[in-house]
Computed example of a mutant assay.
Amino acid sequence: MQRNSIHDSIIASLTRHAALDEDDYAALRGLQLSPRQIEPSTYLVREGEKPARCAFILSGFTYRQKLTSNGARQIVSLQIPGEFVDLQNLWLNESDHNVQALTRTQIADIDIGALRTVVTTRPAIATAMWRTSLIDSSIFREWIVNIGRRDAHTRVGHLLCEFSLRLEAAGIATTGAYDLPMTQEQLGDTVGLTPVHVNRVLKALAQRGLIERDRRKIRIVDWVGLRDASDFNPRYLHLGQS
């Protein structure tokens, strides 16, 4: 992807959250970008390190994760194309979590110092990035509820509903049909279940006529049924926030 196209993608992402003017566009187009491709499991951010750059996802998926002292992993969020990976590290001196590539991913790195300058001098851009971070926090809260207060079938179904709407909003999936970017093990680390349990839940959702699946291809057959069975309300995604 050409750098001009990357700048346009960043502008399109931010204008979903705030109205930008021509001076804002010029400030964003003035950012120096370092495009690169990373392979699955590659670390973009490591816990304990001082962040030096912020990544914008062009294609592919990344995820945040935390490890316990005995090596158990909890996946705490998923980032999709058109999203920034780590805006919170603009103002923090040390990363408190890890970010890894979930799939082969194309990103554009932006120097944190340069991004801070844009944020502090262009209020509308600051508003857009602040809203982006607030939506991230909203999704974190919902995932906590998912793990803490929902049963296995509801947890998995809720995540399938979320993926459907987020991928559709990003223009990379049709209504109710998409390629699931996670393995069953990774889904398990997201919803607090074993891979075997995740497989059983997916089979049960299919048997109930709520979804169809072919390996990682998911099609939601009965959106209302899955939504209701999964205690899903899209309010927390704040789609169309501007």
Rank of each mutant, 00 (worst) to 15 (best):
R104T: 09
Y236K: 07
R46G: 04
T127E: 11
R53Q: 12
L115K: 01
E212P: 03
H7W: 07
A27D: 12
Q100I: 11
H197M: 12
M1G: 04
I147F: 08
I112W: 08
Q32G: 00
Q186R: 05
A108W: 07
V224T: 03
P123W: 07
Q207N: 12
L134T: 10
R46V: 00
M129A: 08
V191M: 01
A173F: 12
Q184M: 15
A18F: 10
A173S: 08
T117D: 06
A206D: 11
T154M: 00
T190E: 04
M129S: 02
D231Y: 12
R227Y: 08
L226C: 05
G113F: 11
E49A: 12
I147H: 12
F61E: 02
I110M: 10
G192I: 06
F163Y: 09
T15L: 14
L20P: 00
E94V: 14
R219H: 05
Q37S: 11
P234K: 12
F84V: 13
I139R: 14
R219T: 08
E22I: 12
A52S: 09
L115C: 11
I6P: 02
R116P: 10
A177W: 09
L87W: 00
A206T: 13
L187R: 13
R227F: 01
F232E: 03
G157D: 06
T42C: 11
T174A: 07
L67M: 07
L33K: 05
S95Y: 10
